[in-house]
Each structure stands twice: as C-alpha cells, then as structure tokens.
Design a protein around this nucleic acid. Structure first.
Lengths: 230, 230
DNA sequence: AACCTCACCGATACTACTCTCGGCGAAATC
DNA sequence: GATTTCGCCGAGAGTAGTATCGGTGAGGTT
C-alpha cells in the first residue's frame, strides 16, 4: 500500500522534502565555509538554496536550529579524521619516523580543510551561536583524545595533578599545531616538513614531563636549573 | 582672546563635546569587554552612553569609525604591557629563575585583563570589523617582538630560513602561552607556577633549534633519530 | 542685550531581517 | 476521479539598526 510506482520522474513528497532540507543545509554550509558567517540569515540561506523565504521555516524553527546539527556535522567530521589517523599511528610501532608522521597528519588534515579549520578558530571564542558551542566541544574532545593517547604511551596519570599536567601538554600541542597550520595556510610556512620539525622539538621538551615527578611537588624542575648562555 | 572665564560650573562647548565623545567610547569599551560585541550598534552605544541616537553621528561617521581607535587603544595597551615587561626581563641577568619570570609575566598580564585577552582571541579570525584587524596587528607585532628577542639571545637569524624558524618558535610560544592562560582563566589550571613549568619545558625543546643548524638543509633533526620508549 | 554657533536630539526615511498566514498545486489516499 | 494532505511560497506584519535633517537652547561673540 505505500508504494505504487517508484521508477518514474515524479518525486515522492518525503523525498522531495528531504532534498529541499539537504539543499538548505548545503547552502548554509557553503556560506559558512566561504568565511564571514556574520551575514548569514534564514533569508539568505533560503535564497541561495533556491527556495522561497517561507520554506526555510518549514524545515527549521530558526537559524540556530539549522546551525546546531550543521556545526556538529562539520566539526565531528574533522575530529573523526584527526582521531582516526591518530589511532592508526598509535597502533603502529613507534619510532622517530612514526612520530613525525603523527605530527604531519593533523597538519595536513587541517591544511586540507581550511574552511572548517578557520571556522573552528573563528567561532571558538564566540559564546553565542551553536557554532561556538560545537567548536569548543571539538576542542575539548581533541584534548581528551590526546590525553588518552599520552596515557597509552606511558605518561603518568594516576593523580589529578598528573592528569591536569597531561591536559596542559595536550593544550600546548594543539595550540602549537594550530598556530603552525595557520601559518602554513597563510603562506608564511610553506614547508610542512619544517613544521613537523618544530613540533618534534616541542615534544622533546614536553616529553621531559614524563620522567619528571612521581609524587613530589612542583619544584622538581625549578631546582634543576641551568643558566642559558647568551 | 580665546578664554575669558574658565572656573565656573558651566562647561565650555569644547569640553562638553570631548566628554560626550569619551562617554561614547567608554560605553562601547564596556560593551565590548562585557563579551558579545555582536549586538553592538551605534544606537546601543548611544543609549548606554546616555545620549540621543543622533549624537553618535556627531562624533563618529559610523560604528567602525569608533571601533578603529578604540581597538587600537585596547590592544596597544596590552601589547605595551607585554613588551615592557619583556624588555625588563631581557635587560636583567639571565638564569633559570629569570626565565621563569619571563614566562610568568605574560601569563599574569593576560590573566589580569581577561576582557581584552578574550576579546583578542574572539575577533582575531574575524576578517570584518576594525577589531579583527587590530587584533591581528597585535599578534603580528608580538611575534615580531619575540623574534627580536630571540635574536638578541643568540638564536641564528642570518638566512631567511633561520628567520622563518624563529617566527615559528615565536608562534609556538605565543600559542602555548595563550592556551595555558585561557585554561587558567577558565579555572582548569589554577596554579600559574605550573603553567610556567610547562612553558619552560617547551623552551627546553625549542631551544634545541639554536644549536641546530648553521647552513644545512632541514633534515638535520630527522637524521638525529631516537626511538621513543613505550 | 542682541546675535551667532553648534552640541545635542526627536523624528523619520530606508534597509534588512524574522517569522506567520493563507492558499496553490501536486502527491497521497480513498 | 474525487478528496485529502502537505510541501512550497508570496505577501506582509513586526522588529531592529543606520544615517540624516531640522530645530532647540545654552555657550560664545560682538
């Protein structure tokens, strides 16, 4: 009873609605990735999608209602890509070349989707709009993913102090990677290998945190001084 | 011939206008630092400043016209604070404790002006609005300042490659400092000393870049491999 | 005192958006 | 084939901001 003919040109209502919705989402996605989401509006999305202004509201209650799932989708894709590659890298035998690979991958992924990457940076500190929320969720998840990885690699994470420290290391690595990826995108740092070099150097430093302290207070490092020559 | 009496209660026109302008600027400043500059508008600023809507346009051609000098002022203050303290630190004899001081200062300055700091992060990647432009100028200047410092400290900067490398190190340090400062502000990293520890560790790594290469190509580090334990 | 200047402002024309309403027409149902 | 459903849409009421204009009154000038 549901279907009679389904091979001909005329669309079913369900399919038709699905497509219109998809077109609205796609239009919004393009506009967002094209930069400047400030001039995003229900009207503009509808127009770009080639549908009437009122149709927008047949599919979404308002702009935020469209943005929430869209933002989740955009950022989840990015996170999944990053996560997947990291997991692969983790499974493989570890040596210096592997480590470089592990740093190169996120740089390449970020460089390969400059739209989403820039979007994430742009909206991260904006409290309003579902985009900001979703971007922060991505950042938090990425940090969590990284910390999990550190633990797998043998960094200590028994006490709250140790875990917080791992979060800091993760934050630093994320920030460094993002900063360098941004420089790469802006053309200042064309050579990705060179960026990897720098990230490896950073790791050389933060890796010291591993054998750093079992239970002592903070001053372990401060004791261990070394005058840096001019 | 200009002045006759200037001691009484009535304001001169000039003074009156100056004050109104200052009130507009102050209103805008507060609204911006209070977060959410998206709902900033000429009208809103005027209302908050307690003046009529038309008065705004007696002082500024439009909102951007007000934002430009305001943004410069906001960020220049921050930059000057950072720069000044860094210069002091640079002049002093260098040892490990000094280095820590040098890292603690920017963290404290950023933590002390969370409004401007968050503002800078928020608008940095927004191409529109004078705020974004000014924030990027701040970031670029800070990077330049840091590079200059590195050179003073003996990092090589003869070739374009070496200079670019210093820029990367500066970018990483800025990004790491900002990321940790943000974590501090959000309550995740309450102890500033601990943040300084982490920054010192990062330096341990990036410092390796100094004795790294005189004229060779990039692979110097890649050669120097070392299998990282589990 | 008479006159001029101008900082301020209410009113307003314009623009741009949000969301609803009534209805058209084709798919779905009988 | 007749009837119902519903995806779509043009029109429009409501809201909000921009920028201008003419006028008012107190500072400033003679």
């Amino acid at each position: 009873m549901p279907r009679k003919r389904a091979l001909a040109t005329p669309l079913t209502r369900q399919e038709s609605k699905r497509r219109t919705r998809a077109r609205l989402l796609e239009a919004a996605r393009q506009m967002i990735l094209a930069g400047d989401e400030s001039r995003l509006s229900a009207k503009a999305v509808a127009t770009r999608a080639g549908v009437g202004g009122a149709t927008f509201y047949e599919h979404f209650r308002n702009l935020q209602d469209l943005l929430r799932p869209l933002a989740d989708e955009l950022f989840d894709d990015l996170r999944e890509a990053l996560r997947k590659r990291r997991r692969e890298a983790l499974a493989a035998p570890r040596n210096e070349e592997r480590l470089r690979e592990q740093f190169r991958t996120p740089l390449e992924i970020l460089a390969a989707s400059p739209g989403v990457f820039r979007l994430a940076l742009r909206v991260r500190h904006n409290s309003v709009s579902a985009l900001g929320e979703s971007s922060r969720k991505l950042a938090g998840n990425t940090r969590g993913d990284l910390v999990g990885e550190f633990v797998d690699r043998g960094y200590p994470a028994r006490t709250a102090d140790e875990r917080r420290r791992l979060e800091m290391i993760a934050d630093i690595h994320i920030a460094a990677t993002e900063a360098l990826a941004l420089g790469h995108l802006s053309g200042r740092y064309p050579d990705v290998d060179e960026l990897v070099d720098m990230l490896v150097l950073v790791t050389r430093g933060t890796r010291l945190a591993r054998e750093w302290r079992g239970a002592a207070g903070a001053p372990a490092l401060r004791q261990d001084r070394e005058a840096s020559g001019s």
